[in-house]
Design a protein around this nucleic acid. Sequence first.
RNA 1: CGAACAUUG
Length: 238
Amino acid sequence: VTWNTAISSFSQSKQFGEALEFFKFLLYMGVDPDGVTIASVLPSCSHLELLNLGKEIHAYVLRNQDLSENSFVVSALVDMYCNCKQVREARQLFNDTRPRNVALWNTMLAGYTLNGCFDEALMLFIEMLENSGVCPNPTTIASVLPSCVHSQSFADREGIHSFIIKYGFGGNSYVQNALMDMYSRIGKIDISEGMFDTIGSKDIVSWNTMITSYVVCGRHSDALALLHEMHRLGQQND
RNA sequence: CGAACAUUG
């Protein structure tokens, strides 16, 4: 338990290397890791793209009934495979896993989006809505929105917006930012502008999204004005 | 008690 808190504090402060070092040290000491340890250390493999270590951990998980049934562990494994560009492996694991909770679906959707498999992401999203019995949450929406933007075969961009409102996710800042980004990418920057003005708590991503939207459509003076306002309000950026 | 997934760059 003490070890787990050490590992999770490492990985939550983005010190992935340290988390892994500590994990290896624990194994060396003969401690056998539980589900929390595994789920805490896997994001480190994921972000550092250490596929081989991730596979070793997967092998270890397969040898242990409790670990294989831990939903946190399975999601973390799927995420690790996606971040290492092993979408096939991730999907395999996803297919073999039951029951599938929201986070597992979210992980798979985000993985498809990350790897540019936009149509697959949308297909999976539809499958989730139709026959999974699992309800989407704001994370689901924020994972799948970029795929709506980039997929050629998805035309109904406003449809997804009303869908979001219907589910009551319109107030989530991740969703708001993703929607702003979507509208500016399809050339409806006036809608992005309107959303930006009504967002109560603008974060760095909101500002960045709006500023770069102005830049890409050639409204450089608006971009600069917004940049200055951001600095005036004391936001961070780099 | 503590652990996994998301939006711009």
